[in-house]
């Protein structure tokens, strides 16, 4: 299985890197807070896939599976907290636009 599994590594890596680029681009370019979170989600998806891929190739799929379950739980909590922060910001600013934030200045 190892040789075949190893041949998977680079093709998958290409697609994971593409997914990372999409997520990062989304986070960097957008002015919308929710869209930034969606970009973050895409990045986490890429990492999930990478972790599972690493486990499969190295022959420890069971362990990485356990790790991914933990990762998903943490991801949910972080996203819920983040949307809570976004909702509160929206309540105070009446906008989701990053350009209308940035009031913190000396």
């Amino acid at each position: 299985m190892t040789a075949q599994a190893l041949s998977l590594f680079w093709p998958y890596c290409i697609f994971i890197i593409m997914l990372v680029i999409i997520g990062l681009y989304c986070m960097l370019v957008t002015y919308n807070l929710i869209r930034a979170l969606i970009g973050l989600e895409l990045l986490i998806k890429a990492i999930t896939l990478f972790l599972i891929l690493a486990g499969y190739i190295s022959g420890h799929p069971v362990m990485t599976q356990a790790l991914v379950i933990t990762l998903i739980v943490i991801e949910v909590v972080v996203i819920v907290v983040a949307t809570g922060v976004v909702l509160n910001l929206h309540r105070q600013n009446q906008s989701l636009d990053v350009r209308k934030l940035r009031t913190i200045k000396d």
Binding site: T48, L49, I52, L53, G55, Y56, P61, T64, Q65, V68, I69, I72
Partner: peptide, 13 residues
Amino acid sequence: LFRFDSPLAAVFE
């Protein structure tokens, strides 16, 4: 994830 032998993680996802 299913294809990589990780059914439980897949269900979670």
